[in-house]
C-alpha cells in the first residue's frame, strides 16, 4: 500500500513538473530564474510574460516562481535559485530592501540579479523600471487637465510598493505645485484593490461634496473609484490611473469618470532587462545601476 501511495505521489510530482513554467531548451542553455511576489498583479504578469518570451527566443531556459506576496519565501526562493547557479536571477517587482538574505546568497554564488520595476539596492546589478516619477507627473498632469487645474483631489496609493510610492510622491509634488488641495491620501488594500477602492470612494464621496478628482497609483483602484462614482451619480469627478491595462482603456473609451491612464512600456522594460543579461553573458556588466523608461499618457482626448 505504501508503495502504491509513493508511486501516486511520484506520478503527481512528475505530472506537475511537466506543467511547470520552465521552458524546454537544449542542455547548456543559459538558465534564468525569474522570482516575483506579485504574479497575480496584471502588470507584473504582463512584463514577466514578455521577458520570458524574449528569453525563449534567445535560447534561454527561463523559470518563473511566484510567492504570492510572501517576502520571506521570496528570500528562500532566491537563495535556492542562487545555489543552483543560474546565469542570472530576475527579480520582478519586489522590494529589494526586504531581500537582503536572498541577494547576499546570490552575491556569494556570483549570480547577478537584475530587477524589473523594483529599486536600486546592494546586490542588484541593475534595476530597469518605468520612470515612476515620470508616471506620477504625467498622471497628475492628466488629472489636472481633467479638473481644469483647480479643486480638491484624493490620492489612492500603496506605500509598501516602492514604485507606487515614488509615483505618488511625484504626483503629490505636481498637485502641490498647481495649488490643488489633496484632501486625503488613502491606502488601497492588496489583495482586493478594486473592491477596496470602491468602498473607500463611496465613503469619501459622503464627506467630500466638492471632490473633483481621484488619482490612483495603478489602474485597479482607479476602476473601483470609477464604479463608486458612477453609482453615486457624481459623474463630474475625474479619475486617473497608471499602468494602461486593457480594462482601463475600455473604461476611458466609455467617456465616463475614468479620464486617463499612463501606460508603462513593459515591452521596452522586458527588452532592456534581456539586453542587459545578454551583455552580462558576454562578460559586459551594466554601466548604470538603474534604467528608467518613460510612460505614455492615454487620455480620453488622445
Amino acid at each position: 500500500m505504501r508503495m502504491r501511495h509513493l508511486s501516486i505521489a511520484v506520478a503527481l510530482v512528475l505530472a506537475a513538473s511537466g506543467c511547470g513554467s520552465g521552458t524546454a531548451q537544449p542542455p547548456g542553455a543559459p538558465a534564468i530564474s525569474v522570482v516575483t511576489p506579485y504574479l497575480a498583479n496584471a502588470a507584473t504578469k504582463d512584463v514577466v510574460d514578455k521577458f520570458t518570451a524574449i528569453g525563449e527566443r534567445r535560447g534561454w531556459q527561463v523559470t518563473v516562481t511566484d510567492t504570492a506576496g510572501d517576502f520571506s519565501m521570496l528570500n528562500d526562493k532566491i537563495q535556492s535559485a542562487a545555489s543552483r547557479r543560474p546565469s542570472a536571477i530576475v527579480l520582478a517587482m519586489g522590494d529589494p530592501t526586504q531581500l537582503t538574505l536572498g541577494l547576499k546568497a546570490a552575491g556569494d554564488n556570483k549570480v547577478p540579479v537584475f530587477a524589473i520595476d523594483a529599486a536600486q539596492a546592494d546586490g542588484i546589478a541593475a534595476n530597469v523600471t518605468s520612470d515612476n516619477a515620470d508616471l506620477g507627473r504625467k498622471s497628475a498632469a492628466a488629472l489636472l487637465e481633467a479638473i481644469g487645474g483647480s479643486g480638491n483631489v484624493a490620492m489612492f496609493g500603496h506605500d509598501p510598493h516602492p514604485g507606487v510610492r515614488a509615483r505618488a510622491a511625484a504626483a503629490r509634488a505636481e498637485f502641490d505645485k498647481a495649488g490643488v488641495t489633496v484632501v486625503t491620501v488613502k491606502h488601497v488594500p492588496v489583495p482586493g484593490p478594486v473592491e477596496g477602492a470602491r468602498k473607500l470612494t463611496t465613503d469619501l464621496l459622503a464627506v467630500t461634496p466638492d471632490l473633483k478628482g481621484i488619482w490612483a497609483a495603478w489602474d485597479e483602484p482607479a476602476l473601483g473609484a470609477t464604479q463608486a462614482i458612477r453609482q453615486a451619480g457624481r459623474m463630474g469627478i475625474a479619475v486617473v490611473g497608471v499602468d494602461g491595462q486593457d480594462f482601463a482603456l475600455a473604461e476611458i473609451q466609455k467617456a465616463g469618470p475614468f479620464y486617463a491612464t499612463v501606460k508603462q512600456d513593459w515591452d521596452a522594460v522586458a527588452l532592456k532587462v534581456a539586453d542587459l543579461i545578454t551583455d552580462q553573458l558576454a562578460g559586459k556588466a551594466p554601466t548604470q545601476r538603474e534604467y528608467a523608461l518613460p510612460g505614455t499618457t492615454i487620455a480620453r482626448t488622445t
Binding site: 488594500p189 489583495p191 478594486v194 473592491e195 477596496g196 470602491r198 485597479e220 476602476l223 464604479q227
Partner: peptide
C-alpha cells in the same frame, strides 16, 4: 455577487 458588483473578476478579489 462580487464579480457582478465590480463588473470584472480578479483571481484574488474574494481573498480578504
Amino acid at each position: 455577487l462580487l464579480s457582478s458588483r465590480l463588473a470584472s473578476a480578479h483571481p484574488t478579489a474574494g481573498d480578504p
